[in-house]
Write a protein that binds this DNA or RNA. Structure first.
Length: 528
RNA sequence: GAUCUGGUAGCUCAGCUGGUAGAGCAAUACACUUUUAAUGUAUGGGCCCUGGGUUCGAAUCCCAGCCAGAUCACCA
């Protein structure tokens, strides 16, 4: 093909570099060559394909589409910018679609209006041939309605703003709203999220909703007077959760550092230091398996409030999550998969024992360890001998209760063995003042009345150390500085952690954590 | 980590019991001044994931590997 001959190896538009070079690119496809050739031709016409000038738009596509009427004078002179997403050329006139951050709008171009003089190059060459789908252009013109009734922009002038050298997937939607040839390969979507976002506009909506979620929480907590803080991500000791950490090394200090698995112990130090309430959106890192619910790095918000307990915190969670649902959906009801979850307060509350009794008919509240073991067997829950009382209860709960909890539900009062940082229950021996909120069969938050008795805390750490010695690689390590801070005195405090990714999945109705993370962790692409 | 499914054109996918590599969209050329999944005619485009094996012959069968998804186990 003639086009191919125009690209000589020594051209600056050629694939670049010799074989074996680190920067060697894959051989260019036919369509990439065409685009590079079009770029060159634009330059030959004196058109800069990558101009630096500001292009000041005065309108978004959605403004015109939502407000334009035949009578309105509002859109008599509009200026928009975005990507060219389709072209329908009909000789001396053309329709096309421009997509800006708000969406797509149809544009209309007429040869003799674009080129009133003799020279028809801008229409015949630049628009019809040298502009490719995906290119950024700016347009000026006026809004109108086509004969078929589609609100469009009649273009009087267009400007090349940036050339696209790779073809985007072309996704089309027909009159019935059916999407054709959708860009759907999950691997490609996650590896090239920028393409996913261009071509699948709902993807951007999800992330906008995620940000709305964050903003709602920030506003809510700031209005209560709590302080947003930042604490170390690189920690000499990892703590605050049961998980395996990522390990790294600081060269100058010549010491091992860990990426945080939680920020709990640091935030509590800040309560010791005198704040009434602190919170942090905390990127945490856990060196564990990956699945559609687990990414190696994920985000939690943790919140600590002095002079409060877990009952108080339950009310806060209800109120805050209800607000999020309303902020995103205008209602407390949220469609998640096949279910509609209603976040309206108050949520159901069960103690763990009540929940197990409700869903299995077995009352385990008075059982000792051997009775529990028997009960587990009769419920077909597999428990091996290394499991202690708390773990057995947790297994029964996980097996028989958790997956049935679709509507938002609080589960309270957990066994002490599972909660080394929570305060012992004021009236129920063997339990701690802790709750989790479960919805759509998944835990979305974990909270407790924080253990502030330094002597008790030391003992709990020590029993964790025992677990570690027995081979539990998720057991907590003893943090002397944290204990020292508690010895100076920490007020009674309620603490909360919410898994932001999990919450985002529910609030945006996504079934995979990868769909609420811009760049989910992937194995490296193989080298060409 | 285990099991299952998949990897073919820029994108979405066909390709049977082994016999010359296919479609739609996208691209290229021409036509077309209100189309809208625009249309019509013509054309080009492939390391069939990688490496072995079986075979006269492999996209197809076998083995190993890489990557992804789903399910399961641990964790949020």
């Amino acid at each position: 093909m003639l086009m191919l001959c125009l690209i000589k190896p020594n051209s600056i538009f050629a694939p670049s570099i010799k074989k074996g070079s680190a920067t060697m690119q894959k051989e260019l496809s036919e369509q990439e060559l065409v685009r590079r050739d079009n770029l060159k031709k634009l330059q030959e016409l004196g058109i800069d394909p990558f101009p630096s000038d500001t292009f000041d738009v005065n309108t978004k596509a959605i403004d015109i589409k939502s407000r334009y009427t035949e009578e309105s004078k509002e859109f008599e002179s509009v200026k928009l910018a975005g990507r060219l997403m389709s072209k329908r050329i009909m000789g001396k006139a053309s329709f096309a679609e421009l997509m800006d951050s708000s969406g797509r709008i149809q544009i209309y171009l007429n040869r003799d209006e674009i080129c009133p003089e003799e020279d028809k190059t801008m229409y015949n060459e630049v628009f019809k041939k040298l502009l490719d789908l995906g290119d950024f252009i700016g347009i000026e013109g006026f809004a109108f309605t086509t004969q078929v009734g589609e609100i469009s922009v009649h273009v009087t002038k267009f400007t090349v703003l940036s050339k696209s050298l790779r073809p985007l997937p072309v996704v089309k939607t027909d009159a019935e709203g059916n999407v054709h040839d959708s860009f759907s390969d999950p691997e490609l979507r996650y590896r090239m999220r920028y393409v996913d976002m261009v071509v699948n506009p709902d993807v951007r909506r999800v992330f906008e909703q995620r940000t709305t979620m964050y903003n709602t929480i920030r506003t809510y907590l700031n209005e209560k007077g709590y302080l947003e803080v930042e604490t170390p991500i690189l920690q000499p000791l990892y703590g605050g959760a049961a998980a395996r950490p990522f390990k790294t090394h600081h060269n100058t200090l010549d010491m091992t550092l860990y990426l945080r698995i939680a920020n709990e112990l640091y935030l509590k130090r800040l309560i010791v230091g005198g704040y009434d309430g602190v919170y942090e959106f905390s990127k945490d890192f856990r060196n564990e398996g990956m699945s559609r619910f687990h990414n190696p790095e994920f985000t939690q918000i943790e919140l600590y409030v002095a002079y409060k307990d877990y009952e108080w915190m339950m009310n806060l969670v209800e109120e805050m999550v209800e607000l999020i649902a309303i902020a995103l959906h205008g209602t407390t009801k949220v469609q998640v998969g096949e279910n509609v979850l209603d976040f309206q307060r108050p949520w159901k509350r069960y103690t763990m024992y009540e929940a197990i009794k409700e869903y299995t008919g077995v009352d385990i509240s008075e059982m000792d360890e051997s009775q529990l073991r028997e009960a587990a067997k009769s419920l077909k829950v597999h428990v091996d001998n290394s499991l202690g009382k708390g773990k057995i209860i947790d297994e029964i709960f996980g097996e028989h209760v958790e997956h049935k909890l679709i509507q938002p539900t609080f589960i309270t009062d957990y066994p002490v063995e599972m909660s080394p940082l929570a305060k012992k229950h004021k009236s129920k021996p063997g339990l701690v003042e802790r709750f989790e909120a479960i919805c759509n069969a998944k835990e979305i938050c974990n909270a407790f009345s924080e253990l502030n008795d330094p002597i008790d805390q030391r003992e709990r750490f020590e029993s964790q150390l025992e677990l570690g010695k027995r081979g539990d690689d998720e057991a907590m390590v003893l943090d002397e500085d944290f204990l020292r801070s508690l010895e100076f005195g920490m007020p009674p405090t309620a603490g909360l952690g919410i898994g932001m990714d999990r919450l985002a999945m529910i609030m945006t109705n996504q079934s995979s954590i990868q769909d609420v993370l811009f760049f989910p962790q992937m194995k490296p692409e193989k080298q060409e």
